[in-house]
Simulated scan of single mutants.
Amino acid sequence: MRRGICLLEEVEFHPMNSRRPLEYLRWLTEYKKEDETLEPGRHVLTKGRSIRSRDIDLVGAFYAVGITGHPQFKVVTLWDCHGGWDGGWRQMLEIYTGVKENLFLSSVDDLRFTAYSRPLGAAPGGPALADATGAEFFVLESARVRPGAALDYLAAVREERVPLLADHGHRPVGLYEVLLCDTEVVTVWATDLDSHLALQRSYDAALGLDDEIDADERLLAWRKRAREFLDGTWRETLLSPYPGSRLAPA
């Protein structure tokens, strides 16, 4: 089986105008909903809306919760490239051949301030994005690892952290190495508000900072274990799925 190929995009909006991320989320989910009527394998570059294809699947469109540690405001999107390298990924690259004029004409020009995209490759044994289902919240982990250690870190996540977080109401959506580099990983987890809060308190209790809830010492052990692979920043951001994307709660 070929590995899954995905795309993660983080979009920021400045100056601080809370309507802009809403306008973008609404625009994005509505036009991708229309793409579901296209035949598999058919794609076209259109003026104002970039590439149209059902094989470039908007699985998740999220509003990033600003108080969890990033510049406000931010939208995060997760795309599944059906068919992998030779499918949706190839279609995305084909729009750049010839540098066509309509590549530069967008109906959301001046709405976004910055956009940062990262291609992702699914790690062996990780969940398939096609099987992902909705949840109240999602946790996006982005970490820098030692050069070449991405798949080793993700194997440890699969074997050790997945069962640990399952006990705290978190299920994995995707375990990915960031492609075209060898120092980044991304993991995505589905959860709910109560589970998120209980996990934070259990970690505090393991540190001796909360005596009103049971501690889970495995959380501290995992942090120590992760440092065997990490070589820089590690961060988690809480994401709220926007209605209209597949990962929004039913």
Rank of each mutant, 00 (worst) to 15 (best):
G87N: 13
R90D: 15
E94Q: 14
V59A: 13
T97S: 14
A64E: 00
Q91I: 09
V59R: 14
M92P: 08
T77C: 00
A64C: 03
T77E: 01
D57M: 12
L58I: 09
C81D: 13
H70P: 02
V76R: 00
I95V: 15
A61L: 01
M92E: 14
I67P: 01
G98Y: 04
G88S: 08
V99N: 14
G66H: 08
G83V: 10
E101I: 10
V75D: 02
L93T: 11
P71D: 12
T97N: 14
W85T: 12
S50K: 08
I51Q: 06
T68Q: 03
L105N: 11
P71C: 08
K74C: 04
G98L: 04
Q72V: 10
P71W: 07
T77M: 00
L58P: 06
F73A: 09
Y63K: 02
A64I: 00
S53F: 07
V75G: 04
T77P: 00
D55N: 13
A61G: 03
V76M: 02
Y63R: 02
T68K: 04
A64R: 00
Y96T: 13
V75N: 05
A61N: 02
Q72F: 08
V59I: 10
Y63N: 01
L58R: 06
W85V: 12
I51K: 06
G66M: 08
V59D: 05
V76I: 09
N102F: 11
L93W: 14
I95C: 13
K100I: 07
S53K: 09
Q72R: 14
A64D: 00
L93D: 15
P71V: 11
V65M: 06
D80V: 00
G66C: 06
G84L: 09
Y96V: 08
F104Q: 07
V65T: 05
T68R: 02
L105V: 10
I51S: 07
F73Y: 11
Q72L: 10
E101K: 13
K100L: 11
V76F: 00
G87W: 09
T68D: 03
R54K: 14
L78M: 05
R90Y: 14
D80P: 01
D57V: 10
S50I: 04
W79G: 03
N102C: 13
W79P: 03
E94Y: 08
A64V: 01
T77S: 01
I95K: 15
F73E: 09
N102A: 12
G83P: 12
V65N: 03
L78K: 00
T97L: 15
D55Y: 11
W85C: 07
C81H: 15
T97V: 12
W79M: 04
D86V: 07
I95E: 15
F104M: 07
W89E: 15
I95M: 14
G84V: 10
G69K: 05
T68M: 05
V65F: 04
G60M: 01
W79Y: 10
R54C: 12
P71E: 11
V76A: 03
G88N: 07
Q91H: 14
C81F: 15
K100T: 10
I67T: 06
V75R: 02
R90Q: 15
G66Y: 07
G84T: 09
G88K: 08
F62G: 02
G83I: 11
